[in-house]
């Protein structure tokens, strides 16, 4: 599991690569906090780019849910984009894709989220 950050204007794009399962969820949560703490200023939006996320289980959903709630409290827009079929299935079945905005790809997400 790997987490990378890119900033597009003021928007934080967090790129997830690998498998978000019980074994990697805790490390991912710490990486995510570190990555977001490193931005310095509070971004208007966080886009979680899942194009290279191959797998997610309930342990991974829990971390995304914690992040989504934290973003909501901080009034930061939070969304996902570019889901693989396996990840989409889990998000649909869990109801997660009905409570968090999911965009088809990064371009669509960046066009929709608040920029500043």
């Amino acid at each position: 599991m790997n987490v990378r950050l890119e900033t597009v204007g003021k928007v934080a794009v967090v790129i997830l690569e690998g498998r978000l399962d019980f074994a990697t969820a805790e490390g991912f949560q710490k990486q995510l906090e570190l990555v977001l703490a490193g931005i310095g200023s509070v971004p208007p939006a966080v886009v979680i780019d899942c194009a290279a996320l191959q797998y997610i289980s309930s342990a991974g959903l829990r971390v995304l849910l914690v992040a989504a709630k934290a973003a909501q409290r901080a009034r930061i827009a939070f969304c996902l984009c570019s889901l693989t079929a396996a990840v989409r299935d889990v998000l649909d079945v869990s109801g997660f894709s009905r409570i968090v905005t999911v965009y088809a790809d990064r371009g669509v997400a960046l066009a929709q989220v608040p920029q500043g």
């Binding site: 989504a68 709630k69 909501q72 109801g95 409570i99 968090v100």
Partner: peptide, 8 residues
């Protein structure tokens, strides 16, 4: 699974 984000 239909419960809103803040109550989840």
């Amino acid at each position: 699974v239909d419960c809103p984000l803040e109550q989840r």
